[in-house]
Amino acid sequence: MGIIGSSIKPFKATAFKAGEDFYEVTQEDLSGKWAVFFFYPADFTFVCPTELEDLGEKYDMLQNMGVDVYAVSTDTHFSHKAWHDTSDKIGKLKFAFLGDQMHTLANNFGVLREDSGLADRATFVIDPDGVIQIMEITCEGVGRNANELTRKIKAAQYVRANPGQVCPAAWEEGSETLAPSLDLVGKI
Rank of each mutant, 00 (worst) to 15 (best):
G164K: 11
G19K: 09
F46I: 05
W34G: 10
H77I: 01
K12A: 11
N145E: 10
V142K: 13
E57H: 14
K187M: 13
L93V: 08
E51D: 15
P180R: 13
L178K: 14
I137D: 03
D85P: 03
L62N: 06
G141D: 14
F124K: 07
E176V: 05
A42K: 04
T45I: 01
A13L: 01
E24I: 10
G110F: 03
F78K: 00
K154G: 11
H84D: 05
T86P: 01
A122K: 02
A179M: 10
R113Y: 03
V125H: 09
L184D: 11
Q165D: 04
A169M: 13
E140W: 04
L184A: 12
A35H: 04
T150Q: 08
F44P: 00
S87C: 05
Y40T: 00
G110C: 05
R151D: 11
T138C: 01
D129N: 15
G19E: 09
E24G: 03
K187E: 15
R144E: 07
K94F: 04
A170S: 12
V36F: 02
V131H: 02
D75Y: 02
V69R: 08
E136T: 05
E114M: 09
D54Q: 09
P10C: 07
E136A: 07
L149R: 07
L98G: 02
K154L: 14
Y23A: 11
R151T: 11
D60S: 12
M65W: 14
S31G: 12
